[in-house]
Simulated assay, not measured.
Amino acid sequence: MTGGTDDLARVPVESVPIDSLVRADSPRLDGENDEHIRLLAESGVAFPPILVQKSTSRVIDGMHRLRAAELRREDRIDVQYYEGDDDSSFILGVRANITHGLPLSLADRAAAATRICAVRPYLSDRTIASATGLSTKTIRSIRAQSSGENSGTAARVGRDGRVRPLSTEPGRRLAAQLMAENPDASLRAISRAAGIAVATARDVRERVRAGLSPVPENQRRADRGPNRNVVPRAGEAGNGNSPETGELTILRTLARDPSLRFSERGRALLRWLVAHTADVRGWKRFVNDIPPHCEDVLARISRMNAAAWHELAGRLERQREESADPEAGRER
């Protein structure tokens, strides 16, 4: 299996020893629900197959069923294997947990969306919304909050070990969005999902009910850095000559190529290119924060990546030459 949950009907079911499986990378912040496990174990019904990542034997979806089977003292369980990487497996697990079984909480889904935005930033808001059961507006708010719109540090760690944002504006706006879409959600659930204090969530609710902005005037755009509104120098904006603009233009051009868009291998290539080139200069945001003892290691990684790109460029150039002159290719 290499696709989403819709592909499960075509995946064979296998019986495997329970002790051969690895605990899930669960999207549930609080882990499995013991009461739900007990009810499943006592139900006496046969469980549908669980979903397992083939390369690691890690459970993607079905930890409640697995633990219920253990309570029944069963030593084997039916599984369906998924052939994907860790991040794809996590996304598939989230999607599966919003369509059946014990539903993910609002906080679970918001945390999962935050993680997906981080590991798959090129996925559309609609795609992430579909996987997590949230609205596209909520995903946009989560993406804005998790991406750290300011160029500096977006949060600090206190003496108690808790991470606190320097600005609550993104969290307040996300909380307001969640309240609008989940009017029955508790303040605690909203605060946890939005990453703000319960008191802050209460203030947001009161402000919204009063017809005010969820963000007080003195907190709006508090995280704007000195360079947020810098106007590009003449000739830089919109001419496609800056490296970032050029890369995006090339990617958009490739994405419109029918030979890539309408083939599975072509779409895979496009996803790979977006993941590895869309923010190729993102290192500039972090380079001054790299600890000295990590600099040599990261420098080696950078040179290895540069060498890999150089090798790819050479390979493509040789292929182009051979296509233009087949005799030259045979001479090599």
Results as ranks from 00 to 15, higher is better:
G3W: 04
G3I: 11
G4F: 08
D6V: 10
R10G: 08
V16H: 02
V16M: 04
I18C: 03
I18S: 03
I18F: 01
D19T: 10
D25M: 04
P27T: 01
L29D: 00
D30M: 06
H36W: 03
L40T: 07
A41L: 07
A41M: 06
G44C: 09
P48S: 06
P48H: 05
P49L: 04
I50E: 00
V52N: 01
T56F: 00
R65N: 03
L66K: 03
A68E: 04
Q80E: 07
Y81C: 04
D85K: 11
D85R: 12
D85G: 14
D87T: 10
S88P: 02
F90H: 01
I91Y: 00
L92V: 08
L92S: 02
A96H: 01
A96D: 00
H100A: 07
L102H: 09
R109Q: 07
A113I: 03
T114S: 11
P121V: 01
L123Q: 01
I128A: 02
L134P: 01
T138E: 10
I142P: 00
G148P: 11
A155T: 13
V157R: 15
V157T: 15
S167Y: 06
L174W: 03
A175D: 05
R192E: 13
V198K: 11
A199C: 06
A201I: 08
R202K: 14
V204M: 04
R205L: 13
A210I: 00
G211P: 01
G211L: 01
V215S: 00
E217F: 03
D223H: 08
V230H: 07
R233A: 14
G235L: 12
G235I: 09
G238H: 04
P243W: 02
P243L: 09
G246D: 09
T253M: 12
P258V: 05
P258Q: 07
S259E: 14
F262D: 12
S263L: 06
R265Q: 05
G266F: 04
R267I: 03
R267Y: 03
L269E: 06
R271W: 08
V274N: 14
T277I: 10
G282V: 13
F286W: 10
V287Q: 11
H293W: 04
C294M: 13
C294D: 13
C294N: 11
S302A: 15
M304K: 12
A306I: 04
A307N: 11
A308L: 12
W309G: 05
A313N: 09
E321Y: 03
S323H: 08
S323C: 08
D325V: 07
E327K: 06
G329A: 07
G329E: 05
